[in-house]
Computed example of a mutant assay.
Amino acid sequence: MTDNSLLTDLFSPVTMGALQLANRIVMAPVTRSRYGEDGVPNALHATYYAQRASAGLLIAEATNISPQGRGYAATPGLWSDEQVAGWKTVTDAVHAAGGKIVSQLWHVGRFSSVELQPGGQAPVAPSAIKAEGDTYTVDGFVPVSMPRALDTDEIPGIIQQYVTAAENAKRAGFDGVEVHSANSYLLDQFLRDSTNQRSDQYGGSIENRARLTLEVTDAVVRVWGRERVGIRLSPVTPDAGNTPPDSDVMGLYGHLIEELNKFGLAYLHLVEGATATSRRVPEGVDLDALSARFEGLFIGNNNYDLDMAIQRRAEGRIDAVAFGRLFIGNPDLAARLRHGHDLVVAPRESYYGGGAKGYTDWPVFAGK
């Protein structure tokens, strides 16, 4: 048995804003698609998250801020009283197990289907540019629908959706929230010139395209306070419709991070490369240079193993490390990494949908 805590401080406590974390191991938001059409968490979800509460921080799976924000069936929501009550059972279970958990606030934007939208309406986006790919509905996979461009006077309503969800997250007992401005969903769609062709104050220049992410962050900080708000960015990931990166990644995200510094957020959670696939980045992009511009704590994410995490922590490139898929089959991942125990590789068929099988039936290490 190897005590890896002798090699690194990843297993030592850390203060992240107002959050006192037991270690620097973070559970990334991992969509598991095990919710009903009402998006209400139940006892099964409470068990799942409580099992993983030994991580320093749990970032709950992406959670729809409104019916309009939904792009996949069987994903959770945070707009109704029933959803708030359901999430309260989850946060109570995590806290009883000694953990900390934040909610990731999610609006998918254009990556949705009319079958998932209220009244069968078109999904909304910065511009009427159709995404590629299929999404999952109660009837199976269907192509994503053509979106409509949001009118300028609708933008305050979008911001209010984030505010309402942030308020609901507080009612539900979360320890904070993460603004989801990544993976080619709504806020990321506004950021990138490949999906934003607007001519108003939310389009055109880098400053204009960053405006909505900054306005949403400001609004959420007003609900929670800056020390309980984080943000997730993915400068080059092409997820959610094969969205090309911005034509000036360094300029856009450099400006955005400099502006985010003014809020004094708890953390920046950055996808280093393409989410869940590769750490490669386009020529001319230096994600370490971008993350170094952030003045708060930095969570590295994407295809990490322990050796890489230890090395990048020793180099001062990360303050904490997020693991996603490894938490599926290893609820006690922090302990397994610390003590050098074998890791379970969960089969892909266990990722999405179903019930307890492949969700809450993974054993903890027998010698723990």
Rank of each mutant, 00 (worst) to 15 (best):
R325V: 11
R211I: 08
D200T: 11
S199V: 14
I206N: 13
V220M: 05
R317V: 13
G316E: 01
N303M: 14
A314C: 11
R226D: 14
F294A: 08
Q201H: 14
I310Y: 09
V285F: 06
P245F: 02
I328W: 02
L256S: 05
R228M: 13
E315P: 07
L287F: 07
D200F: 10
P235H: 06
L290S: 10
A219K: 04
L256E: 10
I257D: 01
G264S: 09
G340W: 13
A322C: 08
I231R: 05
H255M: 06
L306S: 09
G340Q: 07
V321T: 03
N301M: 00
G241W: 10
I299E: 06
A266L: 00
G296Y: 08
S199M: 09
S205T: 15
D288C: 00
L260T: 02
Y202A: 14
G284T: 02
F323M: 07
E215I: 12
M308H: 07
R312Q: 12
I299N: 00
N301F: 11
D200C: 05
L265V: 12
I318A: 05
D288T: 02
A219L: 04
L306M: 04
I328G: 01
F298L: 14
F327S: 03
G300W: 11
I328L: 11
L326G: 05
R222H: 12
P282M: 04
E215R: 06
A320I: 05
E227C: 06
A276Q: 03
R211D: 06
S278R: 14
I231G: 08
E315V: 11
N301D: 04
D200P: 06
L214D: 12
I318D: 07
R313D: 04
L270D: 15
Q311R: 15
L268M: 13
D239G: 00
H255V: 10
M250P: 00
M308T: 11
I328P: 10
R209M: 05
V249W: 00
P235S: 13
H339Q: 14
G284E: 08
D286S: 04
D307W: 14
L212S: 06
L326R: 15
L270F: 15
